[in-house]
Design a protein around this nucleic acid. Structure first.
Length: 441
RNA sequence: GCGCCCAUCGUCUAUCGGUUAGGACACAAGGUUUUCAUCCUUGGAAGCGGAGUUCGACUCUCCGUGGGCGCGCCA
């Protein structure tokens, strides 16, 4: 029997990372097995299930490359079918009507009253429970609407689902679901319950702990492949020492038996590292396209710049695309902002204006304005003054870039060009004297 | 309260009875008297506790302890 799995989220407008991880595991399982990955939108809560929420869900899945193999199923459209199934269960004595709690007549499914219930979870192993520890449960509310358990099982039967891969929180529900499958004469699917993603306190990771929804990671500049890879490593490992994997490798290596059964803490630092890793590994053209798009979006001119040189310097330093152009605006404009701490530390010192002007003067006199000669000038000045190269480099860096970090200074100077560099040095010297630098920009 | 599940460095994990318990993130030091980053090298860092099984337990069993989940006319 060929594998058919599904991702069955309720569209609430936000897709939680724990949820999307379940989708990722389902997708990988299907792709590994050469089976089908399906999407069922559990939109029975008509209040929250708006078209906008559904669009957000589909957008998140598309962003992560979670393509599905058949048109999505909308659970709300199956209500008549669910109710018919419930009626049939009542007719066969497997469920009964009752005015439980006085809210009106609802339909209740009978659970076994004696014996042992057990199933084999592909991740957690054998899960057992005594029948007496279970209870009959409502499958149709007194207002005539079907309950989750019923809809979920009937839809899984109709969709021919062979493996149910979902969150840990459904472990106990599975006993109910299995009895429903049996009552309906349908083969019981295989189950695999994935551990939860938790916060530092070991509680389920929620929006209070930081970005918790896929859309937030997208907005913050994470690459979908980085998030995908990171989420996969929360609860699964290939068995060797590889961590950064291509989609093809993931598909090839993924098995449920390699999934862990204990909860995983969400480690943002590792995700950040992973993101930088993916950016560094991007083909140059891809990085260049993203880079220029962001520079242009900020209204900065790209023409006339040594873009290839700038890209060489910036790609290895970019952890988030959203850092662009903040981290490198000075390559493209004379209106670059100054880091206040950097100004205070490197420029607000005795003799700095004079130093900058001397550097400008010497740079203007240079036969060739390149990495080597700009370095030699500062080295010589450092030696003459007995202060070392470092004392020269830091003020010049902050003066020409406004920042305390970035590419090697001399590579940076060469990329900016002699005229702008000297103009910046002189302008900063002047503003330091006026006191117009350091209070504001 | 009852039931179910889980437990290796700070974090993510490898190990499927015999290992100097490996890797990654993070951290620290060095390569690097220009920063940040990259890259390389090095370092510290773990089997929750107690019994049992076994020639031998991180690994199997039991009891604790801690944590999570479930016990809705929510999904």
């Amino acid at each position: 029997m060929s594998v058919r799995v599904r991702f069955a989220p309720s569209p609430t407008g936000n897709v939680h990372i724990g949820n999307i991880r379940a989708a990722i595991f389902n997708w990988l399982f299907a792709r590994h097995a050469g089976g089908k990955f399906l999407l069922r939108v559990e939109d029975t809560d008509r209040e929250r299930s708006t078209q906008a929420a559904i669009d957000t869900l589909l957008d998140c899945m598309g962003w992560l490359g979670l393509d599905y193999d058949e048109p999505e199923v909308y659970q709300s459209r199956q209500m008549a079918r669910h109710l018919a199934v419930a009626e049939d269960l009542v007719n066969r004595g497997l469920a009964y009507k009752d005015n439980k709690g006085g809210g009106g007549e609802c339909v209740i499914f009978r659970m076994p009253k004696e014996g042992r219930l057990e199933y084999t979870d592909l991740v957690k192993g054998t899960i057992k429970k005594k029948a007496e520890d279970t209870q009959d449960f409502v499958i149709v509310r007194s207002d005539g609407t079907p309950v989750f358990h019923l809809s979920n099982v009937v839809d899984d039967i109709d969709m021919g689902i062979t493996h149910v891969i979902r969150g840990d929180d459904h472990v106990e529900n599975t006993f109910k679901h299995i009895e429903l499958f049996k009552a309906l004469g349908a083969p019981v699917p295989n189950y695999a319950h994935l551990p939860m993603i938790v916060n530092n306190q070991g509680k389920p990771y929620s929006k209070r702990d930081g970005a918790a929804f896929v859309g937030e990671f997208k907005e913050q500049g994470y690459l979908p492949d980085a998030l995908f890879n990171f989420l996969l490593l929360l609860g699964w490992a290939p068995g060797d020492d590889r961590e950064v994997l291509t989609r093809a490798e993931m598909i090839e290596l993924f098995t449920l038996e390699r999934c862990k059964s204990s909860a995983a803490r969400f480690d943002l630092k590792k995700l950040v590292w992973m993101n930088g890793e993916y950016i560094r590994r991007q083909p140059r053209e891809v990085y260049a396209a993203e880079f220029t798009a962001r520079i242009q979006a900020a209204g900065l001119p790209v023409a006339g710049r040594d873009l290839a040189g700038i890209l060489d310097q910036m790609q290895i330093r970019t952890k988030f695309y959203s850092e662009i152009p903040g981290s490198c605006a000075y390559f493209f404009t004379e209106e670059y902002p100054f880091d206040e701490k950097g100004v205070a530390k490197r420029l607000k010192a005795e003799g700095v204006p004079e130093l900058l002007e001397e550097v400008a003067q010497r740079y203007e006199a240079l036969p060739s304005f390149d990495v080597q000669s700009t370095h030699d000038v500062l080295a010589a000045m450092g030696e003459t003054r007995g202060s070392g190269l470092g004392a020269m480099v830091h003020p010049v860096r902050v003066a020409v870039s406004g920042l305390t970090e970035g590419p090697g200074l001399f590579e940076m100077l060469a990329l900016i060009g002699r005229e702008p560099v000297c103009a910046r040095l002189r302008r900063v010297a002047r503003r330091l004297r006026d006191g117009t630098l350091g209070s504001g920009t």
